[in-house]
Design a protein around this nucleic acid. Structure first.
Length: 204
DNA sequence: AACAACCTCAACCGCATCAGA
DNA sequence: GTCTGATGCGGTTGAGGTTGT
């Protein structure tokens, strides 16, 4: 039996709450998760008395209520990292988010779609306006390097001690990132990269 | 002030994968 | 081996806010 779209929507509305979460719902959800832990989302939704599906509860927790969620603007360093990781991993947002503590895959995906994809397109357009020789990348990282040069420049204001520490860490960092450009992606390298401790990504 | 166009981001959807029965 | 429910992921949508005319 085929339902008209409007009827389907009405039916769904009666089934469960949809749309933005209220503070009350957040509170109920957080309370139940604090007792039972973040699993068995269907049960959690029922226990919290929320007229929401488990999936919706999970998403709300993962993207908003979870502790240590970092909210607010993406820093230059984070943007640099996203660009590099996206170049490496493609649209594997959860993997990228895994290397950015406190950031969610949804947040990074949104940031990419609204900011970075445009930024890259703009850079590509600029490059296409140059001569063939000028526009030819010096190495495969060029696009990301151009996009992040401003961020790197801003780092000049940091203290000397931090600079020394950064430069040594960046050498290793760059070595890791440069390696795949030399040839096909190396699985050993990839797994090494993905297992790296989060602290590698923050030089503060 | 009013409207349109654009932007941002929370939330939803469908599909794939995993784990347990 | 198969089924089923739970979970995770990436793509997409749409409401609300902002900016431009």
């Amino acid at each position: 039996m085929q339902m008209a779209p409007v009827l389907i929507n009405e039916y769904r509305k009666k089934e469960s709450n949809r749309g933005a979460w209220t503070a009350e719902e957040d509170q109920k959800l957080a309370q139940v998760i604090s007792i039972h832990g973040p699993r068995r989302w269907k049960c959690i939704a029922a226990k919290a008395g929320l007229n929401r599906c488990g999936k919706s509860c999970r998403l709300r927790w993962m993207n908003y209520l979870r502790p240590n969620i970092k909210r607010g603007n993406i820093s230059d360093q984070e943007e640099d990292l996203i660009l590099r990781l996206h170049k490496l991993l493609g649209n594997r947002w959860s993997l990228i988010a895994g290397r950015l503590p406190g950031r969610t895959d949804n947040e990074i995906k949104n940031y990419w779609n609204s900011h970075l994809s445009k930024k890259l397109k703009q850079i590509e357009r600029q490059n296409s306006g140059l001569t063939a020789t000028e526009s030819e990348p010096k190495n495969p990282d060029e696009v990301a390097q151009v996009a992040t040069s401003a961020a790197n420049n801003r780092e000049e204001g940091t203290s000397r001690a931090n600079e020394d520490q950064k430069s040594s860490q960046l050498m290793i960092w760059d070595e890791l990132f440069d390696r795949p450009a030399e040839g096909p992606l190396n699985l050993e390298w990839m797994s090494k990269f993905l297992e790296m401790d989060e602290s590698w990504f923050y030089f503060a």
